[in-house]
Write a protein that binds this DNA or RNA. Structure first.
Lengths: 250, 250
DNA sequence: CGTTATCTTGACTGAAATCAATCCCGGTGG
DNA sequence: CCACCGGGATTGATTTCAGTCAAGATAACG
């Protein structure tokens, strides 16, 4: 079922499809050349594959090229908390470079393609390319910002507000990287994922989702969801939305 | 009541009291000289003072020299979620440097002394001192790691486990920087803070705390708390604890 | 076709929220 | 000196939101 294929480097950074999206801030030629050398390969994974495992030490850092995945932690008895989602242009595994052991796991949601970087060469990036080091830090700060908002939701929003926030959040992020067209999220996400992201039970998630459907804000269709009124959802959740200034990626 | 005093630079980095603590990884002379020039002053604040305010743009970045504070977000109707605590050696405000507007607030818990850095000069740090840039990123990754664990607590642990986790967490951090002696936390923390950190109501926090007291794990005394059995609390929460390798600070 | 995963609903239970008093203690000012 | 006040901690009674249990419905799949 799960399958991970490590292949040779297929795409050169010059031809990186992400460069063409207006959502991203492009690199200059010199940076591009460095990153291209920094990249040691590509990895592709089927849905449900484990990319990183809590408690292990990885020699690699990844950037998502295509598809989506999620970061999560589990307690001994199996309770799972999804921490955040990773989309094209996002980096995962920085923690293992900086602090050794991973304290979370990553699993692919859809078919995934990743750029592979060697963690041992990361230090060179800091030494030779301050602008890229800055970008890495920027990405870390962005992750922190998303986690802050998530924590606010799980800690202080009601079930209805939480789901409203989360669907709007996913929709905005997916839109930005082309993983949603129109109202439909192009991700095989289940209600189990929603529940585990928001600290709710599956049943209660389902019932609360129905209330959103009744209000015409969102709808569930074959293992994916349709976000009919993102503004309405944000309003309901009291969420400001994401900044839409172009962001860096490596 | 609240008071913030901006004073001249008092302590030179050479004499920084944090350098002497084994918890921290010290800087070399060259780095020290740079940071000393980077520091533009010191700030002291009474308990309850607002250091940063959600929605504003700050020209400064701070490192805690002494005392403790906390980061939080509030919803329009006043619901508050405490995101994390900041202790000596921790940096706050990096987000404003990297991404503009602050999306959280910071309030002092005890008497606070902060080193003030100018955000405009941060870029120079990345350009001239890769090792310090690395440290900044390291601190960001550490914050992310703490937020991950917090999110797991709030989302998936029971009230009893949450409080056990949180008291052990605070105790370990306070111990590492000398803000706890023996069992007693040297911070004026209230049960309101605990409740707002863990997404619980004040009343339920109080009742759950009683259960911990009955088990002899912790105890509340005049606006502060005593952590009698940190290992027992960690065990109860199913928490691994914090890494105790020396950490950088700036 | 069974089989398995996901979604859906209803009935019941339970953990945590809310409401409402008290209590305690350290100011503060008459 | 002592009454008054306010912030925090406590406790009991009640309510409610969300969890658990249970049973189907639906649909993709080998």
């Amino acid at each position: 079922m799960e399958k991970i294929n490590s292949g040779p480097k297929r795409t050169h950074c010059i031809d990186c499809p992400l460069r063409r999206k207006s959502h991203f801030r492009d690199l200059n030629e010199e940076e591009l050349a460095f990153v291209d050398g920094f990249k040691v390969g590509e990895l592709s994974a089927d849905p449900g594959a484990t990319i990183f495992s809590q408690g292990t030490n990885s020699a690699h850092i990844y950037t998502i090229l295509d598809g989506a995945a999620f970061r999560f932690k589990i307690l001994e008895d199996g309770r799972r908390q999804i921490l955040n989602y990773v989309f094209p242009g996002d980096m995962v595994g920085l923690q293992s470079f900086l602090m050794g052991e991973m304290q979370y796991s990553v699993e692919s949601l859809s078919n995934l393609r990743l750029c592979v970087f060697e963690r041992g060469r990361m230090m060179t990036l800091f030494e030779k390319h301050p602008s890229l080091a800055y970008d890495v830090t920027w990405l870390a700060a962005r992750e922190e910002r998303m986690l802050d908002e998530n924590l606010l939701s799980v800690g202080r929003r009601t079930a209805l507000e939480r789901i409203a926030y989360f669907l709007a959040f996913l929709y905005r992020r997916a839109m930005a990287v082309g993983l949603a067209d129109g109202t439909r999220l192009d991700l095989p996400i289940t209600q189990r994922h929603v529940a585990d992201t928001l600290g709710l039970s599956l049943v209660h998630t389902n019932k609360t989702l129905r209330r959103l459907t009744d209000r015409g804000l969102a709808r569930w269709r074959d293992s994916s969801c349709e976000v009919l009124d993102p503004d309405g959802l944000q309003e309901l959740a009291g969420w400001e939305g994401l900044s839409d200034t172009p962001r860096p990626f490596i």
